[in-house]
């Protein structure tokens, strides 16, 4: 049975005969809080750091070569400012466009809009509960998935599936599996002494 509120691009991801048992999005509370934190961080950065650069070189008489280099720096600076100022919007859109879907066969995470989209699909049999962590009044569920990926340092990391920002009352609707608490998960994954 498909919930009527599921958008078309989510419905399109289902296989023939597959039925949704739960569908949800990261909590609005979490989206608002994290967007607010990013917004404040951006504003603080602009106030304390960028304001000093705004009037740099005003009134000075630079040579033609230095003016060229100045233009390159200005272009890079504008790209940087755009990335900074759009960060809160991008964070907000990420939360609003993310859907977590549990079907009778798979866990699916769909992020992005109609044009740019990422769909992560995990067969239920292949993942095992790793931990549940409470954060800012919401619950994050993490499953261990097979395989690994290389992080930015080149280290191998275990693949995981995460449902972030779930309302605590929804956890029991998503899965009947029991998740270790974060503290227990830390104990079980810490190296032997």
């Amino acid at each position: 049975m498909l919930p009527p509120e599921a958008p078309q691009h989510v419905k399109d991801e289902l296989l023939q005969g597959e039925s949704i048992t739960w569908i949800g999005q990261p909590s609005n509370k979490l989206a608002l809080k994290i967007t607010a934190v990013v917004l404040v961080a951006v504003l603080l950065f602009i106030i304390f750091f960028l304001k000093d650069f705004m009037g740099f070189g005003r009134g000075a008489n630079f040579s033609f070569a230095f003016q060229g280099i100045g233009l390159v720096f200005t272009a890079f600076g504008m790209i940087f400012c755009y990335m900074l100022l759009s960060a809160p919007v991008r964070v907000w859109l990420y939360f609003k466009r993310t859907y977590y879907v549990v079907t009778d066969k798979r866990y699916i995470v769909i992020s992005g809009g109609n044009k740019n989209r990422k769909v992560q699909q995990y067969d239920k049999k292949t993942v095992t509960p790793l931990m549940s962590a409470s954060f800012l009044g919401v619950t994050n569920l993490v499953w261990r998935a097979p395989g690994f990926y290389k992080d930015s340092d080149g280290d191998s990391r275990q693949n995981t599936l995460t449902f972030a920002g779930i309302e605590p009352r929804e956890v029991f609707n998503i899965t009947s599996e029991t998740f270790p608490k974060l503290s227990e998960a830390v104990k079980t994954t810490s190296p032997p002494r």
Binding site: K115, K118, V119, Q120, Y122, D123, A145, G147
Partner: peptide, 20 residues
């Protein structure tokens, strides 16, 4: 090959499977 991740943009995209 299990657990497919699909990333698409404008008709093009990437398929990524985990190897077991």
């Amino acid at each position: 090959l299990i657990n497919l991740v699909r990333t698409e943009s404008g008709g093009k995209g990437t398929l990524r499977w985990t190897l077991q």
